[in-house]
């Protein structure tokens, strides 16, 4: 028994080492004074300094940020609508096609999506004269097309779980569907919307393959710049840039984790209170609710 536990924790430890060691080494070597990335030449922050003066990288980072925000906002909007359609409208013409178009981007190799999007933009430009060349617009359109499916999946599961009687109650009290959605449904599914927004933001900031197809010479996103540098080999500037990305993401995740944990605890507290109030009725209704475990 004891041995098995030790073996399991060893496996876990090794697994985490495998997941984190490369990133840790990358960050450590970004402070290396030597240009030879793998030979330690003393501590230095000069690569960060060089990064701050690199106009091309700064522009690319700014463009990526703009694309990601636009993509996340638009995909969250469209993805939420799609989730409502899938969960609440049980039958409508073309439902199979719609479901297929939502799930397909999840399994589609990026390289095919990228090629297809580019060929579309080229054909559209030939026929209608729009979009003129490849720009930030085409990148955002391509990103939304693959991100919205992820939002739909997240929001869909939240919508399916939510207690529909709340909507029905509002409806019975005379609220219009639009009002019911805005006042009742939206606040309940808001965490899923936030998660979807963050996921599509990340997908967009991270994407290199699809962007490479649909980008023009004037609009280079950060991953494209990193990719073209990385293809030439390892360089300390890229290490510094990567470390900054890792730092931003880690801080973001920790904040997000703390906030959601606090919300969850709050929700559990009120749920416990409600459960204690209604324990008897719940049992009568055949819905025994398990009390949440206290942390």
């Amino acid at each position: 028994m004891r041995n098995r536990v030790i073996a399991l924790y060893t496996a876990l430890g090794l697994g985490y080492a495998f997941l984190y060691l490369p990133i840790v080494l990358l960050v450590i070597y970004s402070f290396n004074a030597s240009r030879l990335v793998t030979v330690w030449g003393g501590f230095s922050t000069k690569w960060y300094g060089e990064l701050a003066g690199d106009e091309k990288i700064l522009n690319a980072a700014w463009l990526s940020l703009k694309v990601a925000v636009m993509n996340a906002t638009l995909s969250t909007f469209l993805g939420t609508l799609a989730a409502v359609v899938l969960v609440r409208f049980r039958r409508f013409p073309g439902r199979t096609l719609f479901t297929g178009m939502i799930t397909a981007p999840l399994v589609m190799p990026e390289i095919i999506t990228g090629l297809a999007m580019l060929l579309l933009f080229v054909s559209m430009e030939l026929t209608f004269g729009w979009p003129e060349g490849r720009s930030i617009t085409t990148i955002v359109i391509a990103h939304v097309t693959f991100s919205l499916s992820f939002v739909t999946v997240i929001v869909q599961s939240r919508l399916a779980q939510m207690d529909i009687s709340l909507e029905e109650a509002a409806m019975d009290l005379g609220a219009r569907p639009a009002k019911v959605f805005l006042v009742i449904t939206l606040p309940i599914i808001a965490p899923a919307l936030l998660a979807g927004w963050l996921l599509s933001f990340t997908l967009s900031v991270d994407d290199v393959v699809i962007s490479s197809f649909v980008t023009g010479p004037a609009s280079t996103t950060l991953p494209i710049v990193i990719f073209s540098k990385v293809r030439l080999g390892v360089s300390p500037e890229v290490n510094a840039l990567a470390s900054i990305v890792v730092a931003i993401v880690s801080v973001g995740i920790v904040i997000f984790g703390i906030v959601t944990q606090r919300q969850e605890r709050e929700r559990q507290r009120s749920a416990t209170a409600a459960a204690e109030d209604h324990a008897v009725e719940d049992h009568a209704a055949g819905h025994p609710r398990r009390g949440p475990a206290r942390m």
């Binding site: 985490y16 997941l19 030979v39 991270d206 991953p223 990567a242 990305v245 890792v246």
Partner: peptide, 24 residues
């Protein structure tokens, strides 16, 4: 802790291995 690396850039995680695996 398992999910965290997924949120950092995919490209950067692949790049990290270049520094580990190359000849020198």
């Amino acid at each position: 802790l398992v999910v965290l690396p997924f949120w950092t850039s995919f490209l950067i995680r692949v790049y990290a291995w270049m520094g580990i695996l190359k000849n020198e």
